[in-house]
Write a protein that binds this DNA or RNA. Structure first.
Lengths: 340, 340
DNA sequence: CAAAAAAGCCAAAGCGCTTTGGAAGACTCT
DNA sequence: AGAGTCTTCCAAAGCGCTTTGGCTTTTTTG
């Protein structure tokens, strides 16, 4: 059942039927009702391919997915996706993932924009001066950045959490508990979130006249194994920290294992606070010693990003407003006063 | 730059240019070369929207993503996606995720087929007599099932691993080591993979005249917490098992924690084997006691599914061939002879 | 060497929708 | 009553590609 048939059946022109269906004002309400009714009765659904060709609108949002044999998709992605999908569903939006060579995403961005394959895109895990942000900005497609980039001469719309504030608070708490030597096990420090977190830790330390030891900060891909290794290295060297702040729950698993392997305890010898993106399958309260966390649901962020994308597509949102969400500091058993 | 312009520029008809580009035989090789050359020089890329409208081909593969506030996307998904994306990239395929109400996926399947939004779909986490399989089969869109369904009067193409064989082997090893009371901590037993795994365990036990105790098998959503709880329940009851087979590495984390909480050791008191889908961020060899596993890369499966989908789209693959991959049994420190 | 076959190209008709530019009729106003 | 204004609808022109059917020109064939 296509528009032509429906129009013929109603003894109206395609124009009128199309307009009636799309809510244009220049059609009699009585007629509109008739059309709407017939459309529903016959289960008419406009052909999206045809509509795309005519309007350029696709009803899809895009994400360029970096791939490659040595590229691992972050497990956080799936949680973000849960939120995004949940919102997208209620608004009849689909998500198209365009796999790209991790080292050349630009080509793919250009392609999806030139081909008008999606109405909007989002960018995640941005770095300072991230080229993707500049690119989509010039290409002129609506977008939202999940996270923040920095160092542009233009503003852009983003949704981020207060990474610096969160890690500042976490560090401040540890300092108040008497810790003097903190360590930070961070994610990839080419990404903005990691830079902000480190800044938060440093600021808290500085406020008490302390500093983050050069060997007390490490930046690694966030795996259990890397959390373990980093912790071993930190604790086996001289000047070992008494408290660790860690950028992910997965790495925290490794931290806990390393501490135990060394015959130390949490929080007796080492206090630990990790960032929790809220995974349904791994919860900080279930660690052998319940883990203190800075908590922010990445899933909610996904829903919010979808919401903003939808708003931008329909013109409800404009401008370059960035929003920064606060992060909860949840204290559990893994922190205690510094050992004597 | 569109076809019309390119044709005009070459002083050829759109027909000829189109045919030259798409490899039709009725065009002079010399002409084809000229066309190809000019197309490349001017960076001509056919407009996909137009092409779709004309041919119905989209260059996209689809996945219906169950969503909802209480629906968690499996973290395995992201690894599968890595493989799928990696293959898709090299073949210029995009993946479209259509979020659907978890309780009504049928509507979405019908929509994406009716609208010709994708050229093929895949289905994951199938259950016995999974309605989705019957549906896409009748709808007539090319598809591959990742995993297996059962109980149809038709065959369908799938790629699965030998879950039964894997868990049979794992159990057999434990039995040979003298274990008499095995327990199985399984995933959702409405899914085929879980059923096959349980069957594997039972078959191995039966071969030695043993059986799986009624309270020695549990079926839960695969989270760390559920692994913990199941283990506590198993070990605190009378008739506790001396060996556990577990359906996921994430649950195994909980198993290990529970065993430790109870003051028991692995493998001294309890032997443990888990299934490993090969996550880059959590590796069995890095467990406090290196974990024995049945191993099969879900990422490779993703690539394979993409490959088969591509083959089916282009007509290279037909029929309903199912393929079953063998699973490695990797023995590490977490298994030992049964305690006296 | 004429007839038949093949090769190479083209004009035009879709694909199914949106949107432009009117046009006819109904209504208001002086 | 005639001019001007709305209201309501329509024909037709895109959007950019593929494909059908046919028309020349060249090559093959008996």
């Amino acid at each position: 059942m296509n528009l032509k048939q429906l129009a013929h059946m109603l003894a109206l022109s395609q124009t009128t039927v199309s307009r009636a269906l799309n809510g244009y004002p220049e059609v009699n309400e009585e007629t509109r009702r008739r059309v709407m009714d017939a459309a529903k009765r016959h289960g008419y659904r406009p052909n999206p391919s045809a509509r795309r060709l005519a309007t350029g609108k696709t009803g899809m949002i895009g994400y360029v997915l970096p791939t490659g044999a040595s590229v691992d998709i972050d497990p956080h992605f799936v949680e973000f996706l849960s939120g995004l999908g949940d919102y997208a569903r209620s608004h009849e939006l689909d998500l198209v993932l365009s796999p790209a060579d991790a080292d050349d995403q630009e080509t793919t961005y250009r392609r999806i924009v030139a081909n008008r394959q999606v109405d909007a895109v989002y960018i995640s895990s941005p770095r300072p001066a991230d080229r993707r942000v500049g690119l989509v900005n010039t290409l002129g497609i609506p977008f939202i950045v999940h996270g923040r980039s920095e160092g542009f001469d233009f503003d852009y719309p983003f949704t981020d959490i207060d990474n610096e504030g969160a890690f500042h608070e976490a560090s401040r708490l540890l300092i108040q508990l008497g810790h003097r030597r903190l360590a930070l096990i961070n994610g990839d420090d080419r990404e903005t979130f990691a830079i902000h977190r480190e800044r938060g830790v440093r600021r808290a330390l500085a406020a008490s006249g302390l500093a983050l030891g050069e060997r007390h900060v490490c930046s690694v891909v966030m795996t259990e194994e890397n959390g373990y290794r980093a912790t071993r290295r930190l604790l086996e060297a001289g000047d070992a920290p008494t408290a660790i702040v860690c950028s992910s729950l997965i790495m925290a698993l490794g931290v806990v294992r390393a501490v135990r392997d060394l015959g130390l305890t949490i929080p007796g010898d080492i206090s630990l606070i990790a960032h929790d993106d809220v995974f349904p399958w791994l919860r900080p309260e279930n660690f052998s010693v319940p883990l203190s966390t800075t908590r922010s649901s990445i899933r909610l962020a996904g829903a919010r990003v979808a919401e903003r994308l939808a708003a931008r597509i329909s013109g409800l949102e404009e401008g370059a407003r960035g929003e920064v969400w606060p992060v909860d500091l949840v204290v559990r058993g893994s922190v205690a006063g510094a050992p004597a």
